[in-house]
Computed example of a mutant assay.
Amino acid sequence: MSIRKIAIVVVTYNREVLLKRCIEALKRQHFAWDKLFVINNGSTDGTRAWLDSQEEMEVIHQANTGGAGGFYSGIKYAVEKGFDYIWVMDDDVIAADDALEQLMLAAELVPDFSFLCSKVNSQDGVVINSPNIDTSVSRYQYPQWGEYAEHGMIRVSSSTFVSVLINARHVQKAGLPIRDFFIWGDDIDFTNRLSKQAPGYMVGRSKVVHLRANPSFPSLVTEVDKNRIALHFYNIRNNIYISRKHKRRADLLMDTLHYSKVALASAFTSNGWYKLRVYMKGFWAGWFFNPPIVYPNQKL
């Protein structure tokens, strides 16, 4: 196996206990990595003090710019430092001991790739954070998603930042995650841009557990935490942007109809009128949201 410099980027915010579990799992990896970068998004619990007491990792403290801002900073820093591969995840991800090893074995199988992602399970063993299947076709007009199926690999077009190994070479052309997303969708947009440079794959033998308090797909309809309802503005706005930028017009129309159903359904749930206001604000903003894409080593 050829030698590659591997950096790990973990983004954290006010989850000291989970962060420690995440990092302990990274230390148990069978495959050796070179550097761990932790992006502390302005934590107000004991996270900062604990990170400052650690010597085996490099910590970047910054204001809370959401997960998007954290991954923007971490990936930018790692690419500009010359790492070949960047393994990224949130602080509530627990990687199996051979998770990185399986990703690297997969990397040796394909001529080129933009990203590789792990299979993600919830704490109770249900598959979550599933990537989007790549539906592009071969010259014989059949979908290519199964080209490495015998190795437990499926070709995908996008993935969440729950254990993703990024090929830094393709970030130079695709650009960095958009920090203006704040939360939700920055990973889907970023990996979509990457997969336009080279294929992405889900590696079924690389496994992680995502310790989300609520493992269900995030939706304004099912949101019960009133403090989080306002955050769905970003979910709606960012998904409209993604549909505009990465989908066909017919798919954009279908997404628009779907979002209209979401708005109507939200109005008949607890805090319905508040949810509807958040939805309308995000939906309108999504049609005019055009954040800049920043590239590594770009002077700002």
Rank of each mutant, 00 (worst) to 15 (best):
S73R: 14
Q29G: 01
K27Y: 13
N64P: 03
F181K: 03
R15G: 11
V171W: 07
H232M: 11
N192Y: 14
K20A: 11
V208I: 13
V156D: 05
S130F: 09
D134M: 05
A263V: 04
V11Q: 06
Y77A: 13
V79G: 11
D91I: 05
F71L: 12
L252Q: 15
G282K: 11
I242Q: 04
K245I: 11
Y279C: 07
V88G: 01
R4G: 00
S136V: 08
I236W: 11
K27M: 05
A230G: 01
I229H: 05
M1D: 12
G286N: 10
A63F: 10
F161R: 00
I242L: 06
D92E: 04
L26T: 01
A174H: 07
H210N: 04
E80P: 04
W145N: 08
S114A: 15
L165R: 00
I39F: 07
W50H: 03
F217R: 09
D91H: 04
F190K: 00
D97A: 09
F182R: 06
W87K: 02
S157D: 02
M104P: 02
D189T: 01
H170I: 03
G185E: 04
D97F: 04
D84R: 07
V38Y: 06
F37Q: 02
K261E: 08
S159M: 02
G146L: 14
Y72P: 01
A267S: 15
V10P: 00
S53K: 13
D187A: 03
D187M: 01
V137G: 00
Y241T: 04
V93N: 06
I8R: 03
N290K: 15
P292V: 13
I293Y: 11
N129Q: 13
N238M: 12
R248Y: 07
Y241G: 05
D52V: 01
N14R: 04
V262D: 07
S157Q: 08
A49E: 14
W284E: 11
L194I: 07
D97V: 09
Q29T: 02
A174K: 00
K247E: 14
A49H: 06
K35L: 14
L18R: 10
V137E: 12
N297W: 11
Y274R: 10
M104D: 01
N132C: 08
G272I: 09
K226R: 15
Q298S: 13
D92Y: 03
C22L: 06
K299C: 11
F37D: 03
N14G: 01
Q54A: 08
K226V: 14
L194Y: 08
Q54Y: 01
M280P: 00
F288D: 04
